[in-house]
Each structure stands twice: as C-alpha cells, then as structure tokens.
C-alpha cells in the first residue's frame, strides 16, 4: 500500500496573529511553525495502516526551504520519505494542483490530508486534488478501515453518521478520531536525519485568487452584568439590544 500524506506548515496554535504590508501579508516574524494538527492525524493513520511492512508513507508539502523542520518532524513521526514542492503556497488551488502534478504518475493507493489547515481553514485541497486526479474524494472523515483495495469510511453528518465504502484509489481529509496523533520518539528523530527529503520544482500555474486584505476579529465588547433580581431588565435588553428574543 502506497500512501501519500499532504502536510501543511502552520503557525503554532498559540501564535499572536498580525499582518504587514498594509494588511495584505501575514507577519511571520517570531512565529513558531508546526505540522498542521489535522495533518498529523492523517499521517498517524497512514503510519498505522502501513506498519509492519504493509506499505510506505510519503509526505508532501508545498512550501519553501523554511518548511524543512516541519517536514523532518513528519519523517520523525514515521513517514518513509518526503517531497517538498519548492514554492510559496499561494492558495488552495495552487497547492492542490502542485500535489496532483506530483502524484499523478506515482500510483498512490490512498492520499490523506487533514480536514483543513488551522491557518486558512480552507478545507479545499482534498476535494481539488481528487478532482485533478479523477479519483473519489471523501471529506472530513472520522474513521477509516481498509484492506488496501476496499475501504470503509465513517463521516459525521448532521444528526448522525454516514458510512461510505470506496474501492480503489481515493483521497480523504481526516478529522479527529481517525487516529491518535503520534509523538515522534528519539529513534524516529534520529532516523529522520537520513530519510530522503526530495525537493522538486513547482509547475507554473495561473494565479486565480489574490488576497486583497486581512483583518483581525473586532475586539470583544464589554460584558453587561444584570443583577439576578432584575430579570425584567435582562429580558428587555435581550429584546431591544441583543435582538435575540
């Protein structure tokens, strides 16, 4: 079984987000980067599925050389080799196209991504890669079982659960529950030094979107405290100010 896992290099969850260049660029100064947590779930699942010589796991990242520590971490967690498509990731279309270009003649049985990256939260790459490669794409999955040919997948849907079966190649985006994220061990960290990290050049792709502006959320308003005995005031405010009743 050959599995490809797409990983994003994202700011750590505790990062204070600011912008530069007239609010059109994310300010990367002093930011710590991590493997996108949902991608770690996907990677951990891929490792589980291939453990004991049952297959290989390749990770792919679209990004510049600064992403290499993140990719090394994925190798330390247990991926067999890695590919970095050497280009700044412009948008989901760009990233998906690069991944599809790389994967199209590599014969991967399964491609896994996280449900979304925690920076831009697009949730688009898996669907687009599926489209470009003309393979089924299943989004936001909670459980995955496969014998290498036939896979059974569970998705959470409004008010219940959907069970999907798929035969042959497919791509899926993974949410919590698919696997417990693995922490690399020292043996993994040591072997990551020598595992292959291949850098391939990006293919040229037309620009389809452009960031016009970023804004941080408006600061939270102050809290109005209403004494417990003044329920009438509360109801009036909920009606006239908050307009929820």
């Amino acid at each position: 079984m050959k599995i490809l896992v797409c990983i994003s290099n994202v700011p750590d969850t505790t990062t204070k987000i600011t912008f530069t260049n007239d609010n059109t660029e994310f300010n990367t100064a002093g930011v710590q980067y991590i493997v996108n947590p949902y991608d770690e779930i996907a990677l951990s699942k891929a490792i589980e599925l291939t453990e004991g010589g049952k297959g290989t796991v390749t990770v792919i990242n679209v990004g510049e050389a600064g992403n290499d520590p993140t990719i090394r971490k994925a190798l330390a967690i247990g991926a067999d080799d890695a590919v970095r498509v050497n280009a700044a990731p412009r948008d989901a279309y760009f990233v998906s196209k690069q991944i599809a270009e790389y994967a199209k003649d590599k014969d991967f049985d399964i491609i896994l991504t996280g449900r979304e990256s925690i920076d831009y939260n697009g949730n688009q790459v898996a669907a687009m890669v599926g489209e470009f490669l003309d393979i089924p794409s299943i989004s936001i999955i909670k459980k995955l079982d496969t014998d290498g040919t036939n896979a059974t997948i569970e998705r959470e849907i409004e008010g219940g659960k959907e069970v999907v079966t798929v035969t042959g190649k497919f791509i899926a985006s993974c949410a919590e529950g698919v696997a417990e994220p693995k922490i690399p061990n020292m043996r993994g960290i040591m072997s990551a030094r020598t595992k292959p990290l291949n850098v391939v050049e990006a293919v040229s792709i037309e620009e389809v979107t452009k960031v016009a502006k970023y804004e941080t959320p408006a600061p939270r308003g102050t809290v109005k405290l209403i004494p417990a005995e003044q329920t009438e005031d509360l109801i009036n405010l909920l009606h006239s100010e908050a307009k929820v009743i």
Partner: peptide, 17 residues
C-alpha cells in the same frame, strides 16, 4: 539546531500529554 528544537518539541508534547 533544528534537531534540538524537534527534540524539545517532542519532549514538551510528551510532558503535556
């Protein structure tokens, strides 16, 4: 080094978990 930082991140994650 990047490896020092990876070792630290791993140990920190393990301690937190």
């Amino acid at each position: 080094t990047d490896e020092h930082k990876l070792i630290r991140a791993t140990a920190r994650e393990w301690v937190k978990k």
